[in-house]
Write a protein that binds this DNA or RNA. Structure first.
Lengths: 217, 217
DNA sequence: TTGTAGTTTTACCAATTGGTAAAAACAAAT
DNA sequence: ATTTGTTTTTACCAATTGGTAAAACTACAA
């Protein structure tokens, strides 16, 4: 008898599992985006994927687990666009323009994630609170400082940077979170790429004219 | 036997009932604001009021009923601040300033209502859709036209008014809907009157500088 | 003091909730 | 063909859900 390393043999082509897991995450994201954590049932997610509830539970053993996974998934691509500290060599106007465009693109590409985030915040951020404090807050602080430096150097007007960020966040995320209302107002079935481009143009124009010292253009 | 008009005698001092109904509405608003329609249970609302679920059902016979009531309650005070057509005699700058202040005051005074509204929209506005189309949309159209007139007259820059409104709505409602995130960022337990004043100052300054032709001031 | 309208409590109920346990089906390596 | 790990199905379950039905309680007018 020889000692044989009991190396895990992975029979199933792992790709298939990954694919199903991805489909589950997508369905879950969709569901949580509409009705939040407590308003969503595991059954409905499973149904959406086309598997049984028990089978769903096999992959994600409980609801909070699944929810955290969805939240984390989104947050990863989210947070990096939430703060704008970057290459300080470029001008404030360019940084701000780039920032607005990036956030709007995110709303366009991942509106569901934005909504899941919104639900969590409106519920008092019970799960995200720590994360926001430890990850977003420091970045926020840094960006505030940067804008104050700009103001001191006369590159932008002497505004309150905090509210600048709240406004940009709100104005960009609204095209994801409130898409149904916006498309209703515009008389469209669904928001298209073009609408996001228009939004980007409007927003950057207004913001740059509004706060950049030498009038943006 | 004389025919006596069976006039309804209202024994219970009607005021007491009205008071309890108001307490229920408040509790319901609070609950729906956190977790939306499907995420809220009648039990939890009753508990919050301090009565039994069956007693709650005596006053509001079913959940959707109660939800519609809460929604309507909010909407009444909501919609009139959602459009700004008014006295056309005043200047665009004054109208816009007044508009922003009004919307922010609403967010300050009734943040719960704002959140209920947000939940409804994020869920695709299943109940509000018709109302928005018949009430908000026409006002919206009118205001768009007004702003275009301003632009044609050279009073404001040639922007896209639709996105102007989306931005203002988002930027003002965010202080209600996302209050938990904002207060987290500002390092405060709760947003105070002062924070809303600051927001109003920032927003009006930026917007007026950004879109009014003769630079707002 | 009794009738009556308004209110609250008690007793249920079927459906849905998130979740467990274990049996069965499946697929691949030996 | 058999073992072995992976996946799916079947069978449950206690708790919670929105809601019904009716009994019991309350207070006031006659």
């Amino acid at each position: 008898m020889i000692y044989k390393k009991p190396e895990k043999n992975q029979r199933k082509p792992n790709a298939q599992r990954a694919q199903l897991e991805a489909r589950i995450i997508t369905a879950a994201e969709h569901a949580f985006a509409r009705t939040g954590f407590s308003g969503t049932s595991m059954e409905s997610i499973a149904e959406d994927v086309g598997i049984s509830k028990q089978n769903l539970i096999y992959y994600y053993p409980n609801k909070e687990n699944l929810y955290r996974r969805v939240l984390q998934n989104t947050l990863d691509m989210w947070l990096e666009k939430m703060a704008f500290t970057e290459d300080e060599a470029t001008t404030p106007a360019e940084i701000i323009r780039h920032y607005i465009e990036g956030k709007l693109q995110l709303s366009y590409e991942n509106p569901e994630g934005s909504k899941v985030f919104a639900h969590e915040i409106m519920n008092g951020a019970p799960i995200l609170k720590d994360y926001l404090l430890s990850h977003l807050q420091p970045q926020f602080e840094k960006d505030i400082a940067l804008m104050k430096k700009w103001a001191a150097a006369g590159e932008i007007k002497n505004i309150e940077p905090e509210h600048f960020f709240f406004t940009i966040w709100a104005a960009t995320q609204t095209y994801a979170d409130f898409a149904s209302q916006i498309s209703l107002m515009l008389g469209k079935k669904k928001l298209a790429r073009k609408d996001f481009d228009n939004a980007a143009n409007f927003l950057t124009d207004m913001v740059l004219n509004g706060i950049v010292a030498n009038s943006g253009k």
